[in-house]
Simulated scan of single mutants.
Amino acid sequence: MLKNAQTVQPVHAQPVVSTGSVVGQVSSVLAVIVLLILACGWIARRLGFAPKAVSGQALKVSASVQVGRQERVVIVDTADARLVLGVTAQQITHLHSLPPVSPEEQASQQAAPADFRQLLNTLVKRPGKPQ
């Protein structure tokens, strides 16, 4: 045997990572996250945490005023009357009945909002500022 012989150690090359495997890993993790979000939404809806969709507009809260810390007075529009209700954390009390809203009043309530130019002008105009 040779005493002065150098031992050759193999050179370890870095493993080559293909872009296809990286894209596959990222897309699979993203798909798992999306499926997890959808499953959480489905569970929340089944357990009653998500609001249920209302098929029609049978009831509509047209006005609401906070009276106390947990007390409110609300006006609810129905097909044949407007109800003034007192709402607390424990109960709902009927306070008064009003006649139903006429179609002219409904049209005026649902009128189109002012355009952006008018809104901007009202915001820019300040009391005491000359124009």
Rank of each mutant, 00 (worst) to 15 (best):
S21T: 12
S27K: 14
A39M: 03
V23S: 10
V26H: 06
V8A: 12
L36Q: 06
L35G: 13
L38Q: 09
P15G: 11
S18M: 04
V32A: 10
C40M: 05
L36Y: 07
L35M: 11
V29Y: 04
R46W: 01
L36C: 09
I43Y: 01
H12L: 02
S27Q: 11
H12E: 06
S28C: 11
C40S: 04
Q14A: 08
S27D: 14
G41Y: 00
V17A: 08
W42N: 02
S21N: 09
A44M: 15
R45Q: 02
L36T: 04
R45M: 00
T19K: 10
T7F: 05
V23Q: 07
I37V: 12
A44K: 03
V16D: 02
V22R: 08
G24P: 08
V22H: 06
C40R: 01
Q6Y: 13
I33Y: 14
S27E: 10
Q25T: 03
I33K: 03
A44D: 15
L36E: 04
G41H: 06
A13Q: 14
G24M: 15
W42Q: 02
S18H: 08
C40T: 02
L36G: 07
V32H: 07
T7Q: 10
G20S: 08
V22Q: 09
A5E: 07
I33M: 15
W42I: 09
Q6F: 12
V8K: 12
P10E: 13
V22P: 03
Q9M: 05
P10F: 01
V26L: 12
P10Q: 10
V17F: 04
H12F: 11
V11P: 00
A39F: 00
Q9C: 07
S28W: 13
P15M: 09
S18Q: 12
L38C: 13
S18Y: 07
V26Y: 06
V26M: 14
W42P: 00
S21V: 10
V22N: 05
I43V: 02
S21P: 01
I37P: 01
L35P: 09
V34L: 11
V8M: 05
V26T: 11
V16P: 02
G41W: 00
G24H: 07
P15A: 13
C40D: 06
S21Y: 07
T7I: 04
V11Y: 01
A31M: 13
H12W: 09
V16R: 08
R46E: 00
V34I: 10
I33D: 11
S18K: 04
V32R: 14
C40E: 07
I43M: 03
I37A: 14
A39D: 01
V29P: 02
